[in-house]
Amino acid sequence: MEMPSLRMSARDESSLRDDETFAMNKAKLMSEPNPDRLFFELPPRGIAPKEFVNTHFGPQSGAKNLQFRKGTTTLAFIYEPKTEADKGGIIIAVDSRASAGEYISSKSVMKILDISDNMVATMAGGAADCQFWTRIVAKYCSLYELREKSEITVSAASKYFANVLYGYRGMGLSVGSMVAGYDKRGPAIFKVDSEGTRVSLRLCSVGSGSLSAYGVLDAFYQPQMTDEEARALGRRAIMHATYRDAGSGGVCNLVHITPTEKIRLPSVDVSELLYEFANEIGRDIAYEPQED
């Protein structure tokens, strides 16, 4: 398996002649690095990148508006169709908030990223880390398909993903992703994270609001559901998570992967979902101000 390898930029600089350094810098400036050998510049003088980045961009640093975007609730589950009319498959539901500390830096992030025609990855943890590495995995999958003339399995794609992340362990990457899709073996969800975890699950949630989402999923999940029920369950779990967790919010994006196709459903505002829910169960959530 080809792996993007690290090349230390600080390592060899001293041993180069001036004109060589110049040529190297010029090449760096003029063209994109060879994507097979991903080129990451490291802080000089052997400073550990994780600590360095944390010192200058972390919550304790002065860079209040330059913190990396994070915070999330994502969930996915596999279900069997209940009736003939239903398709079954995988539901992937996510929120859309990106926060830097308490500041909500975006309300409309798409946290379900495409990997191939019938596979997606969700995004939790560092937003940039997820976006970039998911792209690398997507590229690997396309090349695999072209080379092997058959579709890659979710298992293989997630394994490649996990291996790449494991190769960067200790460098401070923050990824908590679910790779979900339908392949020749059927539906599959793999939870992959930046510490190197890779587990196959049928019901899974990741992110700061995952506990609330698990609460709803565990209470209402059934192995056999209609498509409508399954989609409503995904949305409801996200809605309850966004209500309790300040790190999640915005709209609920939902993808339904059936054995034949991948359906991206329109986003629904979680705030409106909550008001609908309160209406449905007849709970009055309006606050009445009292004279004190």
């Binding site: 690095p33 990451f40 510049e41 360095f52 980045v53 940039a128 990457l173």
Partner: peptide, 8 residues
Amino acid sequence: LYYKRFFP
């Protein structure tokens, strides 16, 4: 921007 992930 991401190529400078460890020295942003």
